[in-house]
């Protein structure tokens, strides 16, 4: 599978703290890839390096073979990479439909814009809330709205930072179905996630990040069966690291 997103030796440190340490990583075109790891593993920093909010001290980020390390976030988005943040990044004072309109106006206008807004509202289960201010939605609905805005750009790759944070099990499952539907349409997805039920539902490949390095990689079943991974989640970090170093 050709890589749609790749990092080579990606490095980031804050003062003396080496948060991302020479990470080599890739997401295949059309793949659903989950990135997991315990708190402090460096997932959020890695995510911000991918979207261009942080500049790495070393290494490269490649999107469809092009080096995008020096590109600004909006330039990466224009190339086909779209993002959903951990805390819902919506426009709270505007209506739900208006939020979607702002995302869609890049490539649509007039009747086709209105029709696409209606289609998305239906897909996101937000039909009834179209005229409400986005800030008044429930947390789960805000997460869906942001996913809707992200996919409005017709991305080739969707980056999701903890898309189910704060969701009920039913909302989490519905979100998983949305992600799978998007993937069936050919969108590659990289999700940073804690919820293993959600990871099991959507992931085709899982990467475990630990202390700024790739710790393990494989299918969901392989990762779940990996005792070293279980150990780092339980806080037994030293033994697995020695094991890996060995």
């Amino acid at each position: 599978m050709t890589a749609i997103l790749e990092t080579r030796g990606l490095d980031k440190h804050f003062g003396g703290l080496h948060v991302t340490n020479g990470v080599d990583f890739s997401v295949g075109d059309g793949e659903v890839h989950c990135l997991i790891g315990p708190n402090g593993a460096g997932k959020s920093t890695f995510f911000r390096l991918l979207i261009g909010e942080y500049t790495p001290e070393g290494g490269q980020v490649l999107y469809r073979g092009e080096d995008i390390t020096a590109l600004k976030p909006f330039e990466r988005v224009r190339r086909g990479l779209s993002v959903k943040f951990q805390v819902p990044g919506i426009f709270p004072g505007l209506t739900v439909a208006h939020n979607l309109e702002i995302a869609l106006q890049h490539h649509l206008e007039g009747a086709s814009l209105s029709s696409e807004i209606r289609r998305l509202l239906d897909f996101l289960n937000l039909k009834e809330a179209a005229g409400e201010r986005a800030g008044t939605l429930s947390h789960g609905q805000k997460q869906w709205l942001e996913i809707g805005m992200a996919i409005s750009l017709k991305p080739r790759l969707l980056l999701l930072d903890e898309p189910t944070a704060g969701m009920s099990p039913a909302e989490t499952f519905a979100t998983g179905e949305m992600v799978q539907a998007l993937n069936r349409d050919g969108v590659a997805i990289l999700a940073i996630e804690h919820d293993m039920a959600f990871v099991r539902q959507i992931a085709q490949r899982v990467t475990v990040l630990h202390v700024g390095r790739i710790f393990a990689q494989g299918s969901t079943d392989e990762i779940v069966a990996n005792e070293a991974v279980a150990a780092i989640y339980l806080g037994e970090t030293e033994a697995p690291r020695r094991k890996q170093d060995a």
């Binding site: 909006f74 988005v77 426009f91 709270p92 505007l94 208006h98 702002i102 106006q105 890049h106 992200a150």
Partner: peptide, 24 residues
């Protein structure tokens, strides 16, 4: 118009506006 839409988007959430591909 589109300009005003982007402007209010920036007022509401500049990070999101940039992540929709707009040069804020």
């Amino acid at each position: 118009a589109r300009f005003g839409n982007v402007l209010v988007a920036i007022r509401e959430n500049p990070e999101r506006a940039e992540m929709l591909g707009y040069d804020v």
